[in-house]
Design a protein around this nucleic acid. Structure first.
Length: 428
RNA sequence: CGGGGCGUAGCGCAGCCUGGUAGCGCGCCUGCUUCGGGAGCAGGAGGCCGGAGGUUCGAAUCCUCUCGCCCCGACCA
């Protein structure tokens, strides 16, 4: 992509309304613009990151056999009256009437809708289990939206649902989502700690929140320090679940099974929440399966959320420095940017262009900063945006057939031969 | 919703107390000179001072109301 054609309005000064780093940086790096409190327009750079996170989530959902579907943002009130939540959800639910005076709502979540869907398929226990998810915009009319996209009113969420004929099936589903989540967050370049969370009326230990640890986290979490030494990719469910890790509301120092010196008290940003809620919705809404003896039993359900748009902010909270954002390569808006060092040196400009053309044939993750700016301005913007790798093409390097390769993470600059660029890019 | 704060140019701010019809930095436009880390000089564009009402000869400034935004608390991906 040629940067000159992209809507990429960077700001030099911090907008006053943004107090939290991620919010400031997203605004300054031209990723988002606020429309009303808690509701944002995603500009090209912001949307790229959002899409990359979605991509990783999709791959890991596919890996556990969870199929994607798409439910609408608007839902009929009747569905929520069936479950009883139309009254209990309160003012956070945005209620709307259409021209026929029909009561609709902008969905804050989709349990009712998917429960009705599965119920209406009249499943047999032989059909179970079923796993499904979608990535859809939600609306919750938060009392106080804040921290940019981390607590927006309109936000993008991946919500998955599992249906099983019995408790064992539901637990198996829970386990596979638990492990998928560890993998997703690891691929996003962060450690998200699974902490035990309040389960509500169901009880049991099958509810976990996943928290990215960051100073600006809204929640307090308590975690066994030994957890941090674990290699997430090799962790087993029973072992991961075995560590003491609790959300604030569940932590009671007098009951804590591990000694205080072993316990880390941290701030966390909740980016995922999974829970098994049994038959809460299926019973209320008549979503049953016929089991072996021809009896009908309500489905055992679980729900598994990931705050996709919140993650964009949360990842920045975890990865930034004085110069701006430092995206993990897996979610950077572009992996590589190419800059001509001297705009009036035709040789290096055309060489930069040529490099851009070559590399962008490999995939679409290359940005060509062809804006009519001086090098310092371009590099500062790219640094702010957090592009992990930059090739600076200029006459000094070209004399020796080299370009400068700058790494955002380390700040290092290395001269690399022109001939090796393709190979290098392939390894980013 | 309770408590605190702020609305003046795209962004950051001054002016308000002590009314006289708006200014600075950055950004933007034009020209020249520059240019391998946010250039210099010269010229220029851009603001119904959030909105409504009131006081006054006159309101960004004083008064009343209203809307919006931010921060702290309860809720949540």
């Amino acid at each position: 992509m040629r940067l000159s054609q992209l809507l990429f309005p960077t700001l030099r000064d911090d907008p006053k309304e943004a107090q939290v780093v991620s919010h400031r940086l997203m605004l300054r790096a031209g990723m988002i613009r606020q429309n009303v409190a808690g509701i944002y327009t995603w500009l090209p750079m912001g949307l790229r990151v959002l899409r990359k996170i979605e991509g990783i989530v999709r791959e890991e959902m596919a890996a556990i056999g969870c199929g994607e579907l798409l439910m609408p943002t608007l839902q009929p009130a009747e569905l929520w009256q069936e479950s009883g939540r139309y009254d209990s959800y309160g003012k956070e639910m945005l209620r709307i009437k259409d021209r026929h005076e029909r009561d609709l709502l902008y969905g804050p979540t989709n349990e009712e809708m998917i429960t009705a869907l599965v119920r209406d398929c009249k499943p047999s226990y032989r059909d179970m289990p079923k796993l499904a998810y979608h990535i859809q915009w939600k609306f919750r009319d938060e009392i106080r939206p804040r921290f940019g996209v981390m607590r927006g009113r309109e936000f993008l969420m991946k919500d998955a649902y599992s249906f099983a004929a019995d408790k064992a099936g539901a637990e198996a589903a829970y386990e596979s989502f638990f492990m998928a989540y560890l993998k997703i967050f690891s691929r996003l370049g962060v450690t998200a700690v699974p902490v035990r969370a309040a389960t509500g009326p169901i009880g049991g230990d099958l509810s976990h929140e996943f928290h990215i640890l960051a100073e600006t986290g809204e929640s307090q979490v308590y975690v066994d320090k030994a957890y941090f030494a674990e290699n997430v990719n090799e962790l087993m469910f029973t072992k991961a679940k075995g560590y003491y890790a609790a959300a604030d509301e569940l932590h009671d120092p007098s009951q804590c099974p591990i000694p205080p010196e072993q316990l880390a008290t941290k701030r966390g940003i909740e980016v995922g929440h999974i829970f098994y809620f049994g038959t809460k919705y299926s019973a209320a809404m008549g979503a049953t399966v016929t089991v072996a003896n021809a009896q009908s039993v309500p489905l055992e359900m679980g729900a598994y959320g990931i705050g996709v748009s919140r993650l964009v902010g949360a990842l920045i909270e975890a990865h930034h420095d004085a110069g701006g954002i430092r995206w993990p390569v897996s979610v950077a808006p572009y992996r590589l940017a190419i800059v001509a060092a001297k705009p009036d040196d035709e040789d290096s400009v055309s060489k930069a262009e040529q490099i851009y053309r070559n590399l962008s044939q490999l995939d679409g993750d290359v940005l060509f900063d062809d804006r009519p700016e001086r090098m310092g301005t371009k590099l500062a913007d790219l640094e702010l945006l957090g592009i992990p790798h930059v090739f600076v093409v200029g006459p000094k390097g070209l004399e020796n057939g080299m370009v400068d390769w700058k790494e955002r993470a380390s700040g290092k600059t290395t001269a690399v031969p022109l001939a090796g660029l393709e190979h290098l890019y392939a390894h980013f």
